[in-house]
Amino acid sequence: MQQLPITLRINGRAYSMDVDVRTSLLELLRGLGFTSVKEGCGVGECGACTVLVDGVAVDSCLYLAVWADKRAIRTVEGECADGRLSPVQEAYIEEGAVQCGFCTPGLVMTTTSFLEQRENTPLTREEIARGHAGNLCRCTGYQTIIRAVQRAADKQRRSGRR
């Protein structure tokens, strides 16, 4: 099948390659070793495969790898720089929002983009819930996830760090 050349950045590093046009971004990333990107359904229902494309959260299972050409991809592997967890990652741990952890990488990315787009705006429970409705979690009942989002927002406000 047809291959197309693409160049993209993944977690800040440049990649160039030829990809089979039938490949999803999920498959591309997992094949390159970014196995934090999980497949829970393959049809956009669960959000376990969420990554950021130019800062925007997408389900990588429903995103053609060729669409990633000339774009910057972020996965949860890249959120921890020099061994330092991002405020969102820290908040997930501190609030106990991690159980089986299969939904966690996708959720952390959703929260990351959610907060980047709402810097310094106060958040209601309802907004947070709507902003995370594309990620299923069967373990936590979402209670600690919502708290983690609130806590991460507080951290960002306090530190001014994104």
Binding site: S36, T75, V76, E77, L85, Y92, V98, G101
Partner: peptide, 17 residues
């Protein structure tokens, strides 16, 4: 939690990984 850091950084390996 023992596994929390591995899970938030995507390092935790599941069967398919």
């Amino acid at each position: 939690r023992k596994d929390a850091r591995a899970k938030v950084t995507g390092k935790a390996r599941y069967t398919d990984d």
